[in-house]
Amino acid sequence: MHLRLAPALLTALSFLAPTVASAEFRRIEITIHGMDCATCAHAVRVAALKIDGVETVTVSLQRAVADIRMREGNRVTIEQIRQVVRRSGFTPREANVTVVGSAIERGGAPAIAVSGIDEVLIVDVQRSDASALKTVEDARNADPSVVSEVTGMLKPAAGQPGQIAITTARVRRTQ
């Protein structure tokens, strides 16, 4: 069930991660179209590893994805990853991402800021408000310094380069 996050959840989220000024990508699993051979995959892997902040890159031809893990404190942007794919001669598509950072409010809707790009908007949440709120409350009660982690499907927002919508997102606490 897809439910929009309630403003209350946004407020609760904003209590999380007081030590994190802005969010960062920890994992980008990007779908690549047009990649057919081992050297194609190798070219993408080597180029992605050259991005400062990238820790590991695993490319699968069968699944047509590059799974890119970032170090803590990185400033890698989704556009850098998409550019690597394009410059290797292929077409970047949607991506599953994991973002770690603090939630903010943007136009009355919950959002999470990522370094290097304006913001990543949380559009839908795949859990009930009550469940999400309970998770946030539990996290806050257990440790006020925990950061929120958001995972979801990332697609370029139409007409807004550098601003990316996260759909089917979920919120969970992480240390």
Partner: peptide
């Protein structure tokens, strides 16, 4: 012999 960042398509 294709070097890093290379061989995207020549290799096929």
């Amino acid at each position: 012999v294709a070097m890093p960042r290379g061989a995207s398509a020549s290799g096929h």
